[in-house]
Design a binder for these strands. Sequence first.
DNA 1: TTGTCATGCGACACATATGTCTCATATGAG
DNA 2: CTCATATGAGACATATGTGTCGCATGACAA
Lengths: 186, 186
Amino acid sequence: MTISPRLSTKDAIIEAAFDLLSRDSGASLGDIANAAGVGRATLHRHFASRDDLIKTLAMLAMEEMDQAADAACEEASSYSDALRRMLAVLIPLGDRHGFLATEPLENDPDMVAAYKRQMNETREMIEAAKKEGTFDRAVPTSWIAQSYDHLLYAGWESVKAGEVTKAQAVDLAWRTLTKGLGEANQ
Amino acid sequence: MTISPRLSTKDAIIEAAFDLLSRDSGASLGDIANAAGVGRATLHRHFASRDDLIKTLAMLAMEEMDQAADAACEEASSYSDALRRMLAVLIPLGDRHGFLATEPLENDPDMVAAYKRQMNETREMIEAAKKEGTFDRAVPTSWIAQSYDHLLYAGWESVKAGEVTKAQAVDLAWRTLTKGLGEANQ
DNA sequence: TTGTCATGCGACACATATGTCTCATATGAG
DNA sequence: CTCATATGAGACATATGTGTCGCATGACAA
């Protein structure tokens, strides 16, 4: 009797799904099972439906982002620094998690809850960064959070397009957030 | 003989498609035909396939954005002002065109060409705005363009979420771009 | 060896969307 | 009135993905 029911197979499916779906968000379960080197029936033994698989991937993506963010936070010297470091670790995850942006996850209550929780953590860090003087108190936290998310996305796209390196993307996104694109006068 | 082959029917389908797909990007052709008040066969008489319809919508969206942008440009006093005004007219179009972001259009050469053309126009305006002193010459134009697009998207989402009004979204996105979120010192 | 378990394979049923076709109808032009 | 055109309704074939099931196989533990 195997201690845990062969995690490797399930993991192989998950990895193949992340890999395939990032390149073709319309890939079928057959494609995914094939890429994972398992039968389609085996995939169904681990994931009841396509939605189940997608949801698992989305939850995993949340966890992975949380872990990366937590690791970045531990090394940080301030909340502002933490936000900057998070940018650096989250941008590369776009290759892996980006396809989830085109999935209809807003209907799943669990996903909505998980997303809100993560969003709240970001908001708290932004509030803290405001107190550190990094952000203007007069700017709504919700807008800073939106900008943070979308500039993170912009950074990933820029790297993907080969316009900048990852490090440059982080610097540019962070500069845009904190200092702005305009000349630094006045 | 009708002068032009009953544009109203085709337009009704297009309008219904914009409306339905923005709320449910997975709506079927039957749903769309139904919403348009026409038979599914009639839809096929105007659009050979689903891809054909989507592509038509995407092309129309491009035109609509172009027209709105051009109108905004005519009233503008400078390239910088034009970019700001474009923000104001493009953010509301998100409700209508947003669903196209989840469609796989990157495979269609026509769409890629149209997108590149539009992107180039934006780039040229940004270059001009650089000369006006609005943007730092040291920042890559590609990054400014990316930020512009994504902050535009962020503005739309903020409005959609009810966090800000359209006018506020424009102001915030523009401030983020030109001045930055940080306090305006140094 | 024996038994269990995960798996691969293939068959099957099912659902849905899609594209095509035919026929009857209504509208409007001539 | 007559004809052409656009349309609605519905049938039809097809493709594709999806989910389930049964059975044989191979690995591994007892």
